[in-house]
């Protein structure tokens, strides 16, 4: 729903440069998959988009304003772990969204507002298949159920941009496929811009409308952390025609994955 423009983004920790010269323009409704070797800075990039970390240089514009340097309701996030609140039941987790949004100084809505919030939360639980677990605490939910709850909670916040940090990294392959379907459906319904970081090349190609590879292009053998990663490959996918195995193989070679077969298999599923 909002355009993201990143221009000349840089991030350093002390002397170590993690990201440099990152430029992207993402149109509203695009689904960006970010892939790259471990430690290449793709998660850092996502945290900068979130506002949890600040860039060392360059600008990030969402809509028509540079982003505020702290997390806001404009950008929703689903992490791999700790993505729901352990002290609240599934239903309370979803109600919390309305409580935070319009609960005032008590952080809680009352009366008719609460009833309508509850209605909305129940509908969303139904939607992600957690209606039977509404009164369970996250500790008694499986990993897949927790992630479904986390996605539901984030979507109730109606973010313009959905950020996903390896959201399915800890799930079993079977559950993962279910989650792919759910996410694709929700994305089609809501039409928000999605930025997803993943280790799974197949997942990147299957879900994304655009695959971006983060890698280092410059190397200094005396000082390996002198240069950071940037976007080395930017592939727009046509949803109608599946990504070709050649594209997948090319990206997999860049990232250095050893599981090329499984990547192609996931893409085809």
């Amino acid at each position: 729903m909002s355009r993201i423009v990143v221009h000349g983004l840089e991030k350093s920790y002390g002397d170590a440069r993690v990201l440099e010269r990152v430029n992207i323009t993402a149109e509203p409704g695009e689904f960006l998959s970010l892939v790259g070797a471990s430690g290449c800075g793709k998660s850092t990039f996502l945290r900068i988009l979130l506002g949890q970390e600040q860039q060392s240089g360059g600008v990030v514009v969402v809509g028509d304003q540079p982003i505020v340097p702290e997390p806001t309701p404009q950008r929703g996030i689903v992490f791999q772990r700790y993505s729901v609140f352990p002290h609240l039941t599934a239903l309370q987790n979803l109600l919390l969204v309305e409580d935070f949004r319009s609960g005032g100084p008590f952080g809680r809505v009352f009366g008719a507002r609460r009833r309508s919030a509850r209605q909305e939360a129940e509908t969303m639980l139904e939607r992600v298949g957690l209606a039977h677990a509404r009164h369970l605490y996250p500790a008694s939910l499986s990993g897949g159920m927790q992630q479904r709850l986390a996605i539901a909670q984030t979507l109730l916040g109606r973010p313009q941009i959905l950020l996903l940090d390896e959201p399915f990294g800890a799930l079993d392959p079977g559950i993962r496929v279910e989650m792919h379907e759910l996410l694709t459906e929700l994305w089609t319904e809501h039409g928000m811009t999605v930025v997803m970081v993943t280790h799974d090349i197949g997942e990147a190609f299957k879900l994304g409308t655009r695959v971006l590879v983060f890698d280092k292009v410059r190397h200094d053998p005396q000082f390996p952390s002198a240069y950071g990663a940037t976007i080395t490959y930017d592939l727009k996918l046509d949803r109608k025609s599946r990504a070709s195995a050649r594209d997948v193989a090319e990206v997999a070679a860049m990232v250095g994955t050893t599981r090329l077969d499984s990547a192609i298999a996931t893409t085809a599923s």
Binding site: P73, I77, Y82, F100, G157
Partner: peptide, 25 residues
Amino acid sequence: PPELIAKAQTLGGNSWTMVLRLVLP
């Protein structure tokens, strides 16, 4: 976990409501 605090902010929590609904419990 910083993830929880970041998430609460993306849901519209301010410093005070996060104390009430996240930190205290």
